[in-house]
């Protein structure tokens, strides 16, 4: 694994929320690296700082101190607009729920970012079809999110995250609102995409069944890395 490219590098990151009455130290010196092709779970009890860490890695939030390199780019050097563009091209996001744009069909949601990137229609159609089939929803292309189950919506979100061929996919508790069958199904798909396409996944969870599927488990507590185990 050591010869693999480093996709994410987090160095001594601190994050203190100051908008609250009492400042909250959500991250207290996190250092870690994510390499290409890894399938990593960020694990910890509620309030341990998982979401904060993923937001910072994904360029959705800025750390109070410390350095974040994604694909070799120092995120602190990017302006807000450049950061939006960077997220568009380098990072795929799957959120806990309501990921999709309700007025767009599954297909349109998946091709959304590609449209923002002005990818040609033929290429877009092909990739969308591939991805929808990869997540097992080839027959649901033209359904709106409201016509899909929670599990199906999360699968569309995974397809959307992969569409622009990002450096890695970030998923913050993607199964938190799913039943166990849908959870297993989503993980099967993510795992397969990881193994077949070599896509790097970083996801947070506190669900043991999900943790069991990860090949690397980083445990954080009180904003610090407690353990980092590769299986």
């Amino acid at each position: 694994m050591t010869d693999k490219k480093v996709v994410v590098s987090v160095k001594d990151v601190h994050k203190t929320y100051t908008e609250t009455k009492v400042p909250v130290k959500a991250l207290r010196g996190v250092t870690l690296e994510i390499k290409q092709g890894e399938f990593t779970a960020i694990v910890g009890p509620s309030g341990s700082g998982k979401t904060t860490l993923l937001n910072i890695i994904g360029g959705l939030d800025r750390p109070t101190s410390g350095e974040i390199l994604v694909d070799g780019t120092d995120l602190s050097q990017l302006s807000d607009n450049k950061l939006i563009d960077f997220r568009k091209t380098h990072i795929g996001f799957v959120f806990q729920s309501y990921n999709l744009i309700p007025v767009l069909t599954a297909k349109e949601n998946v091709e959304f970012v590609m449209l923002l990137q002005n990818v040609a229609q033929q290429k877009r159609d092909q990739r969308t079809k591939e991805l929808m089939e990869a997540v097992g929803l080839g027959d649901r292309m033209h359904n709106r999110p409201s016509e899909l189950s929670g599990g199906q919506q999360q699968r569309v979100a995974v397809a959307r995250a992969l569409a622009p061929k990002p450096a890695f996919v970030l998923a913050d508790e993607p199964t938190a609102n799913l039943d166990s069958a849908s959870t297993a199904n989503l993980l099967d798909i993510m795992s397969r995409l990881n193994q077949q396409e070599g896509m790097t996944f970083v996801f947070s969870t506190h669900d043991q069944r999900v943790i069991d599927r990860a090949r690397r488990v980083i445990t954080i507590e009180d904003g610090k890395v407690l353990s980092d185990i590769r299986k």
Binding site: I84, R87, Y98, I101
Partner: peptide
């Protein structure tokens, strides 16, 4: 608001 958040997160610029 939530939806606008998603759109910005996945790469839609404010101008758009």
């Amino acid at each position: 608001e939530y939806e606008f958040g998603i759109l910005k997160a996945i790469g839609m610029r404010t101008s758009k």
